[in-house]
Write a protein that binds this DNA or RNA. Sequence first.
RNA 1: GUCCCCGUCGUCCAGAGGCCUAGGACGUGGCCCUUUCAAGGCUAAAACGCGGGUUCGAAUCCCGCCGGGGACGCCA
Length: 486
Amino acid sequence: MPTSPRVRFAPSPTGYLHVGGARTALFNWLFARRHGGTFVLRIEDTDVERSSDEMVEGILDGLRWLGLDWDEGPGAGGSHGPYFQSQRLARYREMAEQLVASGHAYYDYRTPEQIGAEREAAQAGNGDWRHHRGGRGLAADQVAAFERERRPRAIRFLVPEGSTTYVDLVHGPIAFDHDHIEDFVVLRSDGHPTYHLSVVCDDIDMRITHVVRGDDHISNTPKQVLLYGAFGAPLPRFAHVPLILGPDKKRLSKRHGATSVTEYERQGFLPEAMVNFLALLGWSPGDDRELFTRDELVAAFTLEGISGGHAVFNPDKLVWFNNQHIMRLPAEALAGRVEPLLRAAGTWDESLAGDRRPWLLSVLDLLKPRAHRLHDFVTQAQPLLSDVIHYDEAAVARYLAPPGTRAHLAALRETLAALPAFDAATLETAIRTLAEARGVKAGTLIHAARVSVTGRAASPGIFEVLALLGRDRVLARLDAAMAMAG
RNA sequence: GUCCCCGUCGUCCAGAGGCCUAGGACGUGGCCCUUUCAAGGCUAAAACGCGGGUUCGAAUCCCGCCGGGGACGCCA
């Protein structure tokens, strides 16, 4: 019985949660949930200069919006904390010293400037920098002298000769020759760890079993594998997921438009749609299914299903997913998401939460197939929620202005006023009968009616719209429209 | 420059030697439904980067090339 997996998402709070990070988090989350494992959230804030509390909150908000809850980490507790790297500094120093003590690392007294010069010289020569271990093999008295003057020192990992292979869950076996790895710094002269040291220490301490992260870390992995070996710690399984690229095949960035998940929330996307879309960007269940609920994704997810190629972000498909998920969302749930937008637009009324609730839900159901983003509900429901009609000039010119329209509307008004019931079916029969009696196509009355009651040339089915508006409001709008009809 | 990863329709994926006259989805065109706009249905165009092998047989395996991406820091 294998122990349940522990995975982590370890963002550095130097920016908001962008879609690439969100997808990495999603894959980790799906894997944990699929196998009843633990999803750890760790904040890699060792780069104090570029990190901030607001950024941390922004990232947490993004994760919460997507519904990716973490079992251990900020706000969630856990017995492997602290989960902020800035609070683990002492541990990293301890681990680094341990490396020196065991002969896996050494002190380097050179300054960054000195090394930069050496590197340039080397690269100008044969280009092989790795072999310049200038900081190593110092005489004992030299070291003593440096220590006496309390000269700053960094700790460098001593890369052994040879080669290593590890098996990547998405890429298969990856072999690397130690010749291409230089003696990297694990602890800076200011006592701060470098990325390689901190991730490995944390992943060991936090008992991480599967490291699922971006493809850009694939060439860092050899160094980390070496560190695991030096610490005598078991190697976790690695799964490197390909990056998300922009339409120009370049790494997704600001100039490709929105890259922050929060921005997509603002634009009216459903987290369900975002999750579905992101999951299928670089992963496939192995068959042709496309539409997934969160639970279905959990049930279908495997790391092996991640494809090795880079994926280009396709905004059109996101919109399609959004519409699909909107149509599948129960009206009641939808109402909760749309309410804030209606409030902001000034078309919200408290009765919509009370006795007019069923009516609102009918409106939403009617609008669903036409809504690509949440905001579409606001614009399309406007003529139903408000009695302030904005008449579209072109629509009026085309369907109200033609001579004879006023007479049609008058007849329509008379018919509707006398109707025994005001439901869609009754309305349809009445209007079609009227059209026949007046010798015009039903469309003539329908179009005129549409512009009269909505002010627009496009709307949901007119009979449903009329029924939803109710007789009084319809008659009033017909009266108003007759004044501008030809 | 060195090392690593990747390479199927415009895009996202399926394909793990014969089931492939290469399948699905988004987008695009056409048709249907129809009161408009959507949604929905049907349909069309659209791809195995190139060249060598291996094999009776290759999108699938191997090599080279080309192309794309990434990493080479006392950043993460």
